[in-house]
Nucleic acid binder design. Structure first.
Length: 943
RNA sequence: GCGGGGGUCGCCCAGCCUGGUCAACGGCGCGAGGCUUAGGACCUCGUCCCUUAGGGGUUCGUGGGUUCGAAUCCCACCCCCCGCACCA
């Protein structure tokens, strides 16, 4: 950190400039960003989202608002615990992540086996980097989501939600890790991302007194079944399942019992025992031989598969393995296999009668261990499912589409009593902890009932009433509200708050983060030890957040004063509702929508959020940022490399709205050098400035600054941060540069007021430099507490703007001419239009604009010898804005303007520029061009 | 598949809502010049094609349409990114 940065941080801190308390009567802005999850250090992505709120906070403060921007840390959840456990187990990749990516010293990593330590370490380093970046945060309100007071707050919230009937219990299949004893979401998996529980059909084949149970996704193919596969190497079990005697793989028993089936094992045996026996299929009553299939995975489904060689590439390949002797089978089994021919029951365009055979050929598959079988299977299943038709060989299904046949088959099978269901994953899923996952049916799971139509309607009204920035995001919110179903809001493991009425369950991490912005009012008192966490009983919180109950008796129960309790309620009432909550767009489908739902449920309408901001995701050098790709950029690393102001400005300039940002080192360096050259530029400019009266050019600069102030203000209100920063920094700078170049003697007083405004415009983005600049300019006090530039000090001067536009246009035309003309170029004659032409132009343009008869005007000025088309064309060319300015400033002195600028134009063009007025006596006009001059379009002639 | 956002002159990107001032802002890169002992930084000019007078031609994913006029409006299509849940 540079000494300058350190200095200003110290000043802001000493003067408590970012520690607001309620100021009744003063307008307020309460702005928030989701607390970051502390399983790692904050990174450039966190910064990109948070800095938008930081800019907005500083902007609003300068506009005279009492601004509260608080911060907190998310510890709730199982990821922190999971990482800690993996480290403990000796997982080197986790360790490397800590050390190499996050930059944690070895001696600290040792202590990360304690999850709380891990989180507290990252909290410590993250807090410091946010402070060093100069965020205008009120740290008095900081908390962690595992703090006792916060737990009390979450308990209160869930008690009230349950009373409202929004928390309900239900049963649900989940991907389950038996080691963690917890559902395993996508992020928790090392294998099998995107897999979710699928419902398989169970079909029972009679084998003596047993039901040999096969699992399938294609029950309609029962009509094409030719045999049954079991893996001779695997262990199978006889067991009583839901009152019947089943035979399935031993591993399937566990899964069945986890899926609410009543399972009592009887005995187990090797798969070989089943080989060569016959089992009877339902519906067709065919006796099918049981054959050895080494491709059968016992830990998938029931470990029993019925074979449909016409339509399943695996089955056909395995059958041929036996028939052609690649797989050793017993003599009986071999004979049984030899008698089997594929039995087609589905026809598909583009395939022969036996699609499986086509697929084997097409993929060059030789045996049942071929890796290409996976793809071949997908292909055949897909085509059959979408385009297949059941043939007459499929009995009652014949003529149906496959999709219909499937439903019909289920119905028929169910009627025989030889049908069941089982949840399964179609691909292998492995938990980060290394354990293979399966589907468990969770009972008595607690849900937030987001499917409730009344709740949905209310949430929708929250969004309708809120300002959503950018506006495009609103449609996404609305479709999310429609789509959202019940959300499991509690789980068994990880850090967090227990459900008060069912302490087996811990409130899930997204579900405890919905209305916590309200807690920032209270946390100030808790941190200041003005109220004890254990006294925060639900009734007291009802008063704090809802104004319900009697503060006198509540304060007594809480062991504090009535005034204290009233103060806390006042604090909440002052700051709430949230004026802006900003997050990255991937939080729309969950957090931000939950935020709307819960406010709708718990708070009266006046406390619903007023503003929601959404930004894009961040990429690094054009690629998605990830720890494994090695392009992970921590906030700390970026800050140290580019300095606080450079880092902030670079983030500001990288993207707007919901667009994804691209973090480029080069761009950040550029931003830094821009910030750093501001003050030298200002000093140098002031040194060469002169004391003189204001002229047209000074008026122009003030007018331009007026436009910039408007642009920055509007962009900031709309959270168009990139646009705002570009206008504040770059465009304003360009205006000043133009002024300096254009003016022979830049005026000190003009520069002083312009620089003063410029410093303020830049202050939200580059606060350190802005403070320095403010001091350099002799400003008293702190710029972060100064007023936003006032438009009154920068009057619009259309005449001056018009004058500059005319000069710029003349220069542009002259450059074009100089570019194409070869030949003499020592002198450029510029002819301003004559009074007659000018009068003609004005009247014609005015007539055209008003839609009046132009012919009359043309006839009146026929002596000007200018075709009206030229005038109309020019009108378009200059644009309605400039044209209107011209027509309303009838006394605009074009000749005077250009004549005064002739020296400047000579310098710019490198030729001597002579400005003359057409029609005045003694005009030198060797090319006889003067007559062609029009207002805003002087004629040119090069000699 | 469903939902959301996008495809602009080498690259990044503005413009699109409210059609004409759009060959199209700004930044990067590149070229020329200035400054400097030199380099860097900084400043100026140029950077679709053609053009010996400010002009012309062809462009804004593709194909149609509306209009005197379309990057901007309408329709169809193609392509890219993101989300799709027990997870922060």
């Amino acid at each position: 950190m540079s000494p300058r940065e350190k200095y200003w941080l110290g000043v802001w801190n000493e003067r408590h400039v970012f520690e607001p308390d309620p100021m009744p009567g003063k307008k307020k802005a309460f702005v928030t960003v989701p607390y970051p999850y502390m399983n790692g250090p904050v990174h450039v992505g966190t910064a990109f989202t948070a800095v938008r709120v930081e800019f907005y906070a500083r902007f609003k403060r300068m506009q005279g608002y009492n601004v509260l921007f608080p911060w907190a840390w998310h510890w709730t959840g199982k990821s922190i615990v999971g990482m800690s456990q993996r480290l403990k187990k000796g997982d080197q990749s986790v360790r490397r992540g800590f050390v190499e990516v996050d930059g944690v010293p070895e001696r600290e990593v040792e202590k990360f086996v304690e999850p709380e330590y891990l989180a507290s370490y990252y909290t410590k380093v993250s807090r410091q980097v946010i402070k060093d970046t100069g965020f205008s945060i009120d740290w008095r309100r900081e908390f962690r989501t595992v703090d006792p007071a916060y737990r009390k707050f979450v308990e209160w919230q869930y008690l009230r939600l349950r009373e409202l009937g929004y928390v309900v219990q239900g049963t649900h299949p989940v991907v389950w890790c038996p080691f963690d004893k917890s559902p395993t979401g996508d992020a928790d998996r090392s294998e099998g991302e995107g897999e979710s529980p699928q419902e398989f059909s169970l079909i029972k084949f009679h084998l003596g007194e047993w039901a040999l149970v096969a699992a399938t996704l294609r029950p309609e193919t029962i009509y094409g079944a030719t045999n049954i596969w079991v893996n001779p190497e695997e262990e199978y079990s006889e067991a009583r399942v839901d009152g019947e005697l089943w035979v399935v793989s031993s591993s399937a028993l566990l899964r069945l019992s986890e899926q609410k089936h009543e399972v009592t094992p009887v005995r187990s045996f090797k798969g070989t025992e089943l080989i060569g026996r016959y089992a009877v299929a339902p519906l067709t009553d065919k006796s099918l031989p049981v054959l050895p299939g080494t491709f059968v995975d016992a830990s998938f489904g029931t470990g029993v598969v019925y074979s449909v060689p016409a339509h399943a590439p695996y089955d056909l390949a395995a059958l041929r393995d036996i028939q052609e002797g690649r797989l050793k089978a017993g003599r009986d089994a071999k004979e049984m296999a030899d008698r089997i021919v594929p039995l087609p029951i589905i026809s598909v365009d583009g395939y022969s009668q036996v699609p499986a055979a086509d697929a084997l050929r097409g993929h060059g598959i030789k045996d049942s261990m071929d890796a290409a079988l996976e793809a071949a299977t997908k292909e055949v299943y897909g085509d059959e499912f979408h385009r297949g038709v059941m043939t007459s060989a499929s009995g009652p299904l014949s003529g149906m589409k496959v999709t219909e046949g499937k439903a019909k088959a289920v119905q028929l099978l169910d009627g025989t009593g030889r049908y069941g269901r089982m949840w399964e994953l179609s691909e292998k899923v492995v938990c980060r902890c290394g354990t293979r996952c399966y589907v468990k049916v969770l009972e008595n799971q607690w849900f937030l009932e987001y499917s409730n139509p009344e709740w949905k309607a209310k949430a929708r009204r929250v969004i309708d009433k809120a300002a959503v920035r950018p506006e495009d995001a609103r449609a996404w919110f609305n479709s999310t509200i429609d789509w959202l179903g019940d959300w499991p809001c509690a789980r068994r493991s990880g850090m967090g708050t227990k459900l008060p009425w069912d302490p087996e369950w811990i409130v899930e991490t997204l579900s405890d983060s919905t209305i916590y912005m309200a807690f920032y009012s209270l946390s100030k008192y808790v941190n200041g030890e003005k109220i004890a966490p254990e006294s925060l009983e639900p009734e007291l919180l009802d008063y704090v957040f809802l104004g319900k109950g009697n503060p006198a008796s509540l304060s007594k129960a809480a062991g504090t004063t009535e005034k204290r309790v009233r103060d806390i309620h006042e604090e909440f009432s002052y700051w709430y509702p949230v004026d802006l909550r900003n997050s990255a767009k991937e939080l729309i489908p969950n957090h931000l929508t939950f935020f709307a739902f819960h406010h709708a449920a718990l708070f009266p309408e006046r406390n619903w959020p007023r503003g929601i901001g959404v930004n894009g995701m961040i990429q690094v050098e054009g690629k998605k940022m990830s720890k494994s790709k090695g392009n992970f950029v921590t906030w700390r690393a970026a800050l140290e490399k580019h300095g606080a102001d450079g880092f902030r400005l670079a983030l500001a300039l990288t993207a707007d709205g919901m667009d994804d940002a691209d973090w480029r080192d080069r761009a950040a360096e550029d931003a830094r050098s821009k910030v750093e050259s501001v003050i030298p530029f200002v000093k140098e400019s002031l040194r060469s400035a002169a004391k003189r009266d204001a002229d047209m050019l000074d008026a122009w600069l003030l007018s331009s600054v007026h436009r910039r102030i408007v642009a920055v203000t509007e962009a900031m209100e709309g959270l168009r941060v990139r646009r705002a920063a570009a206008a504040a920094f770059l465009n304003t700078w360009n205006d000043i540069r133009h002024y300096l170049r254009r003016s022979e003697h830049p005026r000190a007083q003009t520069l002083q007021v312009v620089f003063d405004a410029w410093a303020r415009l830049m202050a939200p983005f580059a606060p350190f430099m802005a403070e320095d600049l403010n001091r350099e300019l002799g400003g008293k006090g702190l710029i972060c507490q100064a007023d936003w530039p006032s438009l009154k000090d920068f009057p619009v001067d259309e005449g001056a703007e018009l004058a500059e536009a005319v000069v710029a246009k003349a220069l542009e035309d002259a450059r074009k001419v100089l570019k194409v003309v070869v030949g003499p170029r020592s002198k450029l004659n510029v002819y301003v239009s004559s009074d007659l032409t000018r009068q003609y132009f004005y009247e014609l343009a005015a007539a055209k604009q008003k839609g009046e008869d132009v012919g009359q005007v043309v006839r009146k000025y026929s002596s000007a010898k200018i075709p009206p088309d030229r005038v109309f064309k020019l009108m378009y060319e200059v644009g309605s804005e400039t044209l209107t300015k011209l027509l309303t400033h009838g006394n605009f002195d074009e000749f005077g303007t250009l004549d005064a600028a002739s020296r400047f134009m000579s310098d710019e063009l490198g030729v001597h520029v002579v400005v003359q007025k057409a029609g005045s006596p003694g005009t030198r006009d060797p090319g006889s061009r003067a007559k062609d001059a029009l207002p805003l379009k002087p004629a040119l002639f090069l000699e």
